[in-house]
Computed example of a mutant assay.
Amino acid sequence: MGRKAAKWRKQVEPHFGFLAQLGFGKVDVDDSSFWSLWVQYRSKTSAIRISKSNEFIRSEVHLIRLVDGEVPAYPIWITDDRIDWTLLDNVVVSRRPDLAGELAKQTGLADQELDQQLGFWARVLREVAEDFLEGDFAPLDEAGALVRSHVAENPQQVQVWIPSDAPAGTEAAEQEKVQGTVPPNVGVSVRRYWRGRTSKSKPG
């Protein structure tokens, strides 16, 4: 455990230490990524990961369904496969839309800001996902349905860029190549970008 991970666990523990009494006794930490460090409380069937995100400038809480007793890989795309990860935000929006306005306020990486956020997330976890804490995956599944509805309204897509002087037909070849690396429900579009010298006016 690195210093950053130890510090984050110490900051998280006063808010989420109660999870150990509910069967989430296996605690893991990780600070190997610049973008996020996390502490995770795990039971025999599920896990709750509390992260400090440099990418999104806030703390985040994920609810996770274990697969064969292990945390599954984070899904890059939403497919027809079962959703085993969700942000607590999605559970709030699904079950307590009246609290949705509070979610945008959970921001900042200063210690005082993070303490406020952690207190909020711990309270909300017990209020909107108590059944998850008892081993029921209904909150995760309801949040998954919400995510799928958002994806249906805003289809997933990969944007590929090729240089302006690429040979004719490159678009089709690139689209076929990339399409083979993503799920069928993810679209692929190809566009050209200008590559060349910028013309400069000669002095008069």
Score class of each variant (00 low, 15 high):
residue 2 G to D: 09
residue 2 G to Q: 08
residue 3 R to T: 14
residue 4 K to W: 13
residue 4 K to V: 12
residue 5 A to Y: 10
residue 8 W to T: 08
residue 9 R to N: 09
residue 13 E to K: 00
residue 13 E to T: 02
residue 20 A to K: 09
residue 25 G to V: 05
residue 26 K to R: 08
residue 29 V to H: 13
residue 35 W to M: 12
residue 35 W to E: 09
residue 36 S to Q: 14
residue 39 V to W: 06
residue 42 R to H: 10
residue 43 S to H: 01
residue 50 I to M: 11
residue 53 S to R: 11
residue 56 F to L: 15
residue 57 I to L: 15
residue 66 L to K: 09
residue 71 V to W: 01
residue 71 V to F: 01
residue 72 P to D: 06
residue 73 A to V: 06
residue 77 W to L: 02
residue 78 I to W: 02
residue 79 T to Y: 02
residue 82 R to F: 07
residue 85 W to D: 02
residue 87 L to Y: 13
residue 88 L to G: 03
residue 100 A to K: 11
residue 100 A to C: 12
residue 102 E to N: 14
residue 105 K to C: 00
residue 107 T to V: 13
residue 109 L to M: 11
residue 109 L to D: 01
residue 110 A to Y: 11
residue 117 Q to G: 04
residue 120 F to T: 08
residue 121 W to P: 07
residue 125 L to W: 02
residue 126 R to V: 03
residue 134 E to V: 06
residue 138 A to Y: 04
residue 143 A to C: 08
residue 146 L to R: 15
residue 147 V to T: 09
residue 148 R to A: 07
residue 150 H to E: 15
residue 152 A to D: 14
residue 154 N to L: 07
residue 156 Q to P: 09
residue 157 Q to G: 07
residue 157 Q to K: 09
residue 162 I to P: 02
residue 164 S to L: 03
residue 168 A to I: 11
residue 170 T to S: 10
residue 171 E to R: 10
residue 172 A to H: 02
residue 172 A to F: 04
residue 177 K to C: 03
residue 180 G to A: 06
residue 181 T to K: 14
residue 182 V to Q: 00
residue 182 V to M: 01
residue 182 V to H: 08
residue 184 P to R: 15
residue 188 V to E: 07
residue 188 V to N: 01
residue 190 V to K: 00
residue 191 R to V: 08
residue 199 S to D: 13
residue 199 S to Y: 12
residue 200 K to D: 12
residue 202 K to I: 07
residue 203 P to E: 15
residue 204 G to A: 15
